Computed example of a mutant assay.
Amino acid sequence: MKKATFLAAAIALLGFTSIDVNAQAPQAAHQAQQQTDNKEKISKEQLPEPVKAVLDHEAYKEWTVGDIFKVKPVEGAANAKTLYEISLTNKEGQTGTILLDETGKDASTEEQL
């Protein structure tokens, strides 16, 4: 009898967990779609001068610029700025991405997206 009660409780718990996961999935998909909608691929020439100056700095001379995305702020976000997501690759094949605001400052620690 105890085994049957335990088994029923375990099945019920699994059922609640799967319902919760399914309820969160559409929200996560919506957020991912919203972030994609706010990204626009641009060229290095389209970057603001302060961002170009950062890429021309000594720290990035060994890196090759790859894809560049202009990330527009989410509608309704307070104090949101346009950001620039820049993919870089060095001669050893290591890759990295930097996130800069319009003034060339590191924006990777700010929650603006």
Rank of each mutant, 00 (worst) to 15 (best):
K44P: 05
K61C: 01
I68Q: 03
Q33E: 07
K39L: 09
V71T: 01
E45A: 12
L88W: 02
Q35C: 04
H30V: 14
A9N: 13
K41H: 02
E62C: 03
D67G: 09
Q31D: 11
L55W: 01
L83A: 01
T103V: 02
G66Y: 06
Q35N: 06
E45I: 15
E58G: 04
L100V: 02
I68T: 02
A53V: 14
Q31M: 15
V51I: 04
I98G: 02
T17L: 15
N79D: 14
T103Y: 07
T64V: 14
V65N: 10
K81H: 09
G96F: 07
G93E: 02
V74L: 15
P73I: 01
L88C: 02
Q112L: 14
N22C: 08
A59F: 09
S18G: 08
D67P: 01
L100C: 02
Q94D: 14
D101F: 05
D37R: 05
D67M: 14
L14W: 08
E75I: 01
K81G: 03
I11P: 00
I68E: 02
F16Q: 11
K52E: 04
G66F: 04
N38W: 01
A28Y: 12
P48A: 08
Q33Y: 00
D106R: 07
A32W: 09
L55D: 01
V65P: 08
Q46A: 13
H30N: 09
Q34F: 10
Q35R: 12
D20Y: 10
F6I: 14
S18Y: 15
I42W: 11
T17E: 09
K72E: 12
K39F: 02
Q112F: 07
